[in-house]
């Protein structure tokens, strides 16, 4: 009998031998059983046998996702004190608060795979772990907060709706919760842009400028093109991902064009054109050099974001220590 704890760190080989199978199966046999389960749309749960690659891939993806939620608070946080009204300020606060929660749900899901929270946070702070490239762009005007909600949350939702069907149970469950909360994020952003685009010529120009700057980085959020994404095929086979980067990107474009038209704004892509034959929009080419530079740490705000995270973590150290000291003192008093 084992203690049921999702937080203990167990290598998958130990997990395998702890299974209730009457004998220890060879890995190859375990792996084919695992794949059968995945193919039959059965969720994989923390204590199931899983290939090491599956576990590693998930830890990387879920922790990157968590880091993105956390770092993603910074560009929007930049405008909380300068929101144009109390109404917009409370809304933005609520949204940023949600993103913190999303980070926590995701770290917890990753922890069920045996990687500790501290380890993941360290990887973010040391620069070893990545987060979404989009958050390395600056928020220059209030219209950027509208564009982020509309496009950045919009693109994230596409990905997250897909991940509600991911094969790993705890990840899928976290995604269901997140998707429910996301629904107001995109709307509040679009609502800001409706207001600006109906406003003065300067306000409308501000909205257009935000779209001009955020459009291409938003498309980059779906990741490299399928032909340059070596891990994609394996992720699809394991049903961690259910749709490819390019598929999701295309659906996003198809859905967003009419939304831009409604605002009277122009998407900054001269090649964007409806294609009757494919029933999709044709569109231009992503600047992959820019994408790779931002991923490599050379985006406009990479250094600033990392510095802000490191400072927040260091500034919070005394709080973490004080809470532990207080809990220790209290339990000593209760024991006495």
């Amino acid at each position: 009998m084992y203690k049921i704890s999702l937080r203990e760190r167990v290598p998958s080989t130990t997990l395998a031998t702890r299974n209730t199978f009457p004998y220890i199966m060879p890995d190859s046999q375990q792996e084919s059983l695992f794949q059968q389960k995945v193919d039959a749309e059965q969720k994989i749960e923390p204590r199931d046998w899983m290939p090491d690659g599956y576990r590693k891939n998930l830890v990387r993806q879920i922790s990157q996702h968590a880091h993105s939620e956390i770092v993603g608070m910074l560009p929007e946080g930049n405008w909380i004190t300068r929101a144009p009204s109390l109404r917009r300020k409370t809304i933005l606060l609520a949204k940023v608060q949600d993103e913190a929660g999303h980070g926590l749900y995701l770290y917890s899901a990753a922890e069920t795979l045996g990687t500790g929270r501290d380890e993941m946070v360290d990887q973010l702070l040391s620069g070893a772990a990545k987060y979404s490239s989009i958050f390395n762009y600056p928020t220059l005007t209030w219209a950027d907060i509208g564009a982020i909600g509309w496009l950045v949350d919009g693109a994230a939702i596409m990905n997250q709706v897909m991940l509600c069907r991911t094969s790993y149970g705890p990840y899928a469950r976290a995604m269901v919760r997140i998707c429910k909360e996301e629904s107001f994020h995109q709307r509040q952003g679009y609502d800001i842009l409706i207001t600006l685009s109906k406003g003065t010529p300067e306000q409308k120009a501000m909205a257009q400028d935000a779209l001009d700057r955020w459009w291409w980085p938003s498309l980059m959020m779906f990741g490299p093109s399928d032909k340059d994404s070596p891990h994609s095929a394996q992720s699809l086979k394991w049903k961690i991902k259910r749709q490819s980067n390019d598929e999701l990107r295309q659906i996003f474009i198809d859905r967003t064009v009419s939304q831009a038209e409604f605002l009277g704004l122009k998407i900054p892509d001269p090649k964007l054109k409806w294609n009757e034959a494919t029933q999709h929009y044709d569109w231009g080419e992503i600047d992959w050099t820019e994408f790779n530079e931002v991923i490599r740490g050379n985006g406009p705000c990479n250094a600033e974001r990392m510095a802000a995270r490191r400072k927040a973590h260091a500034d919070g150290a005394w709080v973490r220590e004080a809470a532990l000291a207080y809990a220790g003192k209290k339990s000593k008093r209760n024991a006495a």
Binding site: R87, T90, I91, A94, D98, W150, G154, E181, S183, F184, Q186, R187, Q188, Y190, D191, I194, R255, T256, S258, Q259, F262
Partner: peptide
């Protein structure tokens, strides 16, 4: 008192799809 946490707080104009 935080109704703005719900998507219904932001009625989308007619004709806007997929939001």
């Amino acid at each position: 008192d935080k109704v703005y946490r719900h998507p219904t707080f932001y009625p989308m104009p007619e004709g806007v799809k997929y939001i």
